[in-house]
Amino acid sequence: MTTREDGAVTGSATTESAAARTTEEDDGLLPQLVAHLREHRTRLREEWVGRIHGAHLLQAMTASEMVAETTSVYDNYVEVLETGSVEELQHYARDLSERIIPRGVETHEVVGIVLLLRDVLARSLFEKYQGDMLVLNRVLDAYEPAANRIANTVAVSFVDERERVIRQQQDSIRELSTPVLPVRERLLILPIIGVLDRERARQLTEQLLTGIRTHRAKVVVVDITGVPDVDEAVANHLVQTVDASRLMGASVIITGLSPEIAQTLVTIGVDLSKMDTIGDLQGGLEEAERLLGFTVTRRGGAGGP
């Protein structure tokens, strides 16, 4: 009985010892793996670049840009394998995205090059450890989850950055398409060109109210000569914009209504008593100056004084 207990204890100790050795060996595999990838950095990076060219990726980059970016990506990739720091990887991925998005690099290209690098490095590890399948399996068990996490993090970071850039560009386009322009002290003009949908109408109102506050405007001329049509929702939004502007102390004059838009406003029953409308922009500016207390004097013909 004692012998069996001793045997059991001995067997248990042997198992624990073997497990500890395996853990120590596994812990030592990662530094070996990283050292191998750094030692063969030039060859592996060149092989990777060859695969990138073969897949027709990053064609928007010059040869020098390709060398710089692939070297940077390779070094950061290996560093993340070593440290496991996802935060550092996310920071690097954002920086990379900021550099390459303006060059026309697409999302599928970024995902593609990272997956190609993962495969090139995996093949290199297979060649190194193929003589010992047990060690190879442990190396791949350590490498594959980390490599997949890197690929996923880079892809998500790139998509997030690309969406941020697109939103920024859209905001810039909207600001350019609906500029709030100071004409003279306390007088603003807002020329609107193109389709006026709900989202643009909302953005227009925000810009207009901000402009009224910034320039301490008393009169605003909104010219919609370049707007082809408005629906009921947008028309009601214009009325709300007029009301909001009045609350901030500014009168709104709307100019340039087309016959079609005028008929639409009447048909859908917009409260026209809340809207001060003038036929054209020149007339609207003259009315605005009158409201501000300026005297509008018309000159004679070309031959007059």
Rank of each mutant, 00 (worst) to 15 (best):
H53P: 01
E287Q: 14
H108Y: 14
E144Q: 12
T42Y: 13
L117D: 03
A244H: 11
V222C: 10
D243N: 14
Y77S: 04
D231V: 05
G112V: 02
L292F: 02
N76L: 05
D231E: 02
R213Y: 04
S273E: 14
D132G: 10
G226D: 01
L58C: 03
D197V: 11
T225S: 13
D271Q: 13
V110M: 06
L181C: 10
L247P: 13
E5A: 15
T153W: 01
E46S: 12
S85R: 10
L208N: 05
A93S: 14
R94P: 03
L265R: 12
G54D: 01
L116E: 04
R38M: 06
L285Y: 02
D26N: 14
L196K: 06
E82T: 00
I150L: 01
D27H: 12
A93Y: 03
H215T: 05
E39K: 14
V270Y: 09
R94T: 13
H56K: 06
D280A: 08
Y74K: 00
L33A: 03
A13W: 00
D276S: 11
S72K: 12
A146W: 01
V222T: 07
N152F: 09
N76A: 04
V120M: 04
V159F: 01
G300I: 00
A20T: 13
V230A: 08
T214H: 13
R299F: 07
G11E: 10
S245R: 09
V195G: 12
G131A: 15
E79N: 08
D141Y: 08
A235V: 01
L136S: 11
L204R: 10
R41W: 10
E106G: 07
V80L: 03
H53S: 12
L89D: 00
I101K: 11
M248G: 03
I166F: 00
E79A: 09
E79L: 07
V139Q: 05
A19F: 00
T83C: 01
E109D: 10
G84R: 13
H237C: 04
V234H: 09
W48A: 07
V227W: 00
I192A: 04
L29G: 02
Y143C: 03
G303S: 15
S177D: 02
E88A: 13
V67L: 09
P228M: 08
A151I: 01
E287T: 09
L140C: 06
V230T: 06
A60F: 02
F126E: 12
T264S: 02
V49W: 06
V156W: 06
V296C: 10
A235Y: 01
G84H: 06
E24F: 12
E69S: 10
Q263E: 03
A68G: 09
V252S: 09
L281H: 06
D95I: 02
F126G: 04
R299K: 12
L37H: 08
I166V: 03
G194P: 00
